[in-house]
Design a protein around this nucleic acid. Structure first.
Lengths: 236, 236, 236, 236
DNA sequence: AATGAATGAGTCTTCATTCAT
DNA sequence: AATGAATGAAGACTCATTCAT
């Protein structure tokens, strides 16, 4: 079963709103289902954070969710699927945080866009850092859990497109390579900021961090006429 | 936990240090011990790579190492300790690859040192990438396994020291922040290069990658008189 | 347990018999009920064949029958009862195939009747061999499922009666024993023919099989005057 | 893992006796293993009889065997394998009972051999009838349990060989067919005798049964010159 | 009467660890 | 020291059955 169909199964039909609700019972039970699924996702996230992936047992998750183990398996065919759903939900939340910023940034010049993007990255990682850590660092990437790194892939595509569109403002040889470098560095930096340097999370320190990372990005992309000029001068 | 303390823990404060080895049998058995420990570490690494952390059982490890499960527990008090020892060993190997480079680089100007350091980072990650991946992405960070990220901490210290020593060549406000940014970015970039973009691993592509990352580093650190100049002009 | 008592059990002594069906809605719903029950029996048989008894879950059966699990339990109080009903239905079908033959055979001399009975046995086992196999070989014989071997009991009674009625044509000491032997052998032979020797199921091979089994029966029952005669002659 | 290797694993090396026992510990532990395996097989058989296949859980089996569940899985990789081993053991016991009889019978004329074979069949089925019933009637024949009906296959081969060797004494067209018929009937008759007609199990009744089945066999196989003669006469 | 969400006892199985030999 | 048999807590998962709607 694909992850997508899994989700559909888990969340029930998403077109609820479209069809006229002739059967109130159906709606009631759908609400019930939805509540169960939400409780399970919440419980999973909480336990993942508290105990790590290995010690997060489905029985414990069900208990914390206040749901029977049978219900858990009614909605998620395996522990993996459950964790994958949590990951997906988290991913969606992350993306949501940055989405508008990225869309708006697309039209702005790099000097402006860069700072906004960096800030969006930091904000996104602050959504649920501890969950993010578990998801990023402790999950075996096999089976259902294989395709979880979608955020980076998405970001990569966005970045490459952006760089392509702003080619005249920047100095980049290989678009692919540049996008890879920027996305990887940005992701790692915001990730590590939040997870490894909580001491950097005061408001002013965060601003300094954003300044610096923005500088990293802009200087990397900047065309370097003046530099050459100075070098020429230096050679004289 | 360091490898040394690990071993001490494993051997339970043995008499190694206390008495001079007058007894050749002791030497023989120490050799044997060492062989057993090596076999166990090797087997663990192999199985970690092949099956992932979750499916790496101590029984299987012992079997692959050609050692009884009892002996495994004679040398390592728990699975965690065993994996931690593997991680430590891997870390040492990584560091060894980069050590000389870093030491030599310490005396060179940044423009030269940067490239060498980047190259060293790439080389280090090519040591045993699949083990590196498992260690980095699948290991629960609790208990004995909590303190595994020592590489980054080491590197961080080195970098900060280096930046401090070359302060006149560069334009950096907060040394701490700059070191954090560079180390984090470098680690992530070399890691992702090796693990996520095997298509970038041909010789010429690697060179291009090193060029780019070097540029990232150098431009980030470069004093930017001309920029300020232009900005000043802009402000007028 | 007979199918009738089964149904009564299933319907919980419904009012079927009590009041005449004046109400057309009742008829409609009875039809619907009957359809539901049939769908369930069909689904059970299919799944029993496909998955075996162990893996035939009531939920799956209900799903395949296109009926809610709740409805399944409205008609059958347990999985056992459902399987018992399937067994009973199968049994009735088997018996139906042989019934006329047996009734007609009752009036015929053994030499004729035997062949017809054997053929009827083969035909009966060809009704739904795979269901027959599951029912015969995989069903736990406890609880509701205890009394499933009714076919053999029926056949046994028929046979004994027949042998009793034709006593003058045959040479049998203990009627009970002879009936037991014949019924057991016949059942096993036709069963095994269909289930274990599909290679014997071509038309001509089946005829040969019927010839042989008929011979087995007739010779077993035959009075042996000529034999004795020859023996007497031999003794002179 | 094949069933054979399974057994070897379960019973340890069978060549124990051949090698000089240098290591007394090994032998001790082998005795221990053997005892564990035996206890497990015994417990399985008992529970199979008492509760049937479905309700025989591995935990219960281990408990009854006085062995930890872990040990059970050390020797048998699955419930199926355990049951298969019980079946195999039972089969071997059955075969052992009849083996000598069959070997000796091979040299005797049919009239003598038949009775001995029938008696051997009855004796064999009296070994552990209730276990035999469960094994024969309740076990899903899939996976490891697929190849359990080996007794009948063995018997079939023996019979065909015997019939072939004694061709001059008997009147048989198709050896294959005749062997199939005899083996199937014999197996079913002795099986049913023991399991369905305990009332036939008094000494004299068993003798009567043996007489009758012997008659069934002998008459089936007997050349029938006189019959044909009488038939010829009848046709005139 | 029908639905299907919910239940939870119970299943098979794994595996880190202990300990008698 | 080494061995490997034994342990048993704990885990993922199934499924017959109930019951609110």
């Amino acid at each position: 079963m694909s992850y997508r169909s899994q989700l559909i199964l888990a969340f029930g039909q998403t077109n609820m709103a479209r069809r006229p609700q002739k059967n109130p019972r159906k709606i009631a039970s759908q609400k019930r289902s939805r509540a169960t699924v939400d409780a399970l996702l919440e419980a999973t996230a909480r336990i993942l954070i508290k105990d790590g992936y290995d010690r997060a047992s489905t029985n414990k998750i069900a208990a914390v969710a206040g749901v029977s183990i049978g219900s858990l398996y009614q909605y998620f065919p395996s522990k993996e699927a459950l964790v994958a759903a949590v990951a997906e939900r988290h991913t969606q939340e992350l993306l949501q945080v940055g989405r508008d910023t990225l869309l708006e940034a697309a039209a702005k010049p790099i000097a402006v866009a860069a700072r906004e993007i960096v800030r969006a990255g930091v904000d996104a990682h602050r959504v649920d850092p501890r969950l993010h850590r578990v998801l990023a660092e402790e999950i075996p990437h096999t089976g259902h859990l294989a395709g979880i790194n979608s955020v980076e892939r998405h970001s990569f595509e966005h970045f490459r497109a952006y760089l392509g569109a702003h080619r005249d403002e920047i100095d980049v040889g290989d678009l692919d390579l540049a996008a890879f470098i920027l996305v990887t560095a940005l992701e790692a930096l915001t990730h590590s900021l939040v997870l490894r340097r909580p001491d950097f999370l005061t408001d002013d320190k965060v601003e300094a961090f954003i300044d610096e990372v923005t500088r990293l990005v802009l200087r990397y992309l900047a065309p370097a006429p003046r530099r050459r000029a100075s070098q020429r001068r230096a050679k004289r």
